[in-house]
């Protein structure tokens, strides 16, 4: 009882704790319970396409975090001035600008990554996670909360695609972040001991399988059922 009242009074104060319980939940909820990929099944397209290797996946994850956080911040700052009739176009313009910025920066400083990720950086624009968070949260909440919310969602997306990429690269190419794991294992056990890589994991089908397994494990643990 007393704990609850204390919490309520904290929330009513204008200066809410920098990382209050409610704000922590904004970040932690999308990691598992409200995960955009495994629960809401959004952003699957890029999750399948870029996850053959860890390195491009990490770049993609960072790009998505940047775009979601920044667009949430910008839209939240403008939320009281955005005319509601054109709000979708405004959101799209902001997101598209941010994505183009990311793409330009990659092109200048990491051209190989830019080539490898090719269209998928541009396709962050159409990633439902971005627009979904803007519509559902940033339009009605304060900037700092929106940033946390965006960060949480993007992080939920990121850890899933990184996990998928980890298994795909390990099983498909026998490596992690380009480090030849299989080769070093083989060298320990001698030349007769060979670990075969699985070509299926390199193809998009492999991503479906890994993703399905992750969703299975997660839903078994959390007991989540779709209604």
């Amino acid at each position: 009882m007393s704990a609850e009242t204390v919490e309520k009074t904290i929330e009513k104060k204008p200066a809410e704790a920098f990382l209050s319980k409610r704000r922590k939940k904004l970040v932690s909820d999308p990691l598992v319970d409200e995960n955009p990929i495994t629960i809401q099944v959004l952003g699957i397209c890029s999750a399948l396409a870029v996850t053959t290797q860890m390195k491009p996946t990490l770049v993609m994850a960072i790009s998505v975090i940047f775009v979601v956080v920044m667009s949430n911040l910008v839209i939240s700052l403008m939320r009281n001035t955005i005319p509601s009739r054109v709000r979708i176009i405004v959101q799209l313009a902001v997101v598209a600008t941010l994505v183009t910025l990311v793409s330009e920066v990659l092109k200048a400083f990491a051209y190989d990554m830019y080539k490898e990720l090719s269209v998928f950086v541009g396709l962050i624009i159409t990633n439902c996670i971005v627009m979904g968070r803007l519509e559902a949260f940033a339009l009605g909440n304060k900037p700092y909360d929106s940033v946390l919310d965006g960060f949480g969602s993007a992080l939920g997306y990121s850890w899933i695609i990184l996990t998928v990429a980890f298994f795909r690269e390990l099983l498909g190419s026998g490596a992690v972040f380009g480090l030849p794991i299989y080769e070093s294992i083989s060298s320990i056990f001698g030349p007769d001991f060979n670990l075969a890589t699985n070509g299926l994991m390199v193809s998009p089908v492999g991503a479906f399988i890994i993703l399905g397994l992750i969703i299975w494990v997660q839903r078994t643990k959390t007991g989540y059922v779709e209604h």
Binding site: T100, L101, E104, V105, K107, A108, F109, Y111, Y114
Partner: peptide
């Protein structure tokens, strides 16, 4: 941004 990063992109 395009102006700023243009030369670097050309190099790349």
């Amino acid at each position: 941004t395009s102006q700023l990063l243009g030369p670097r992109q050309k190099e790349a």
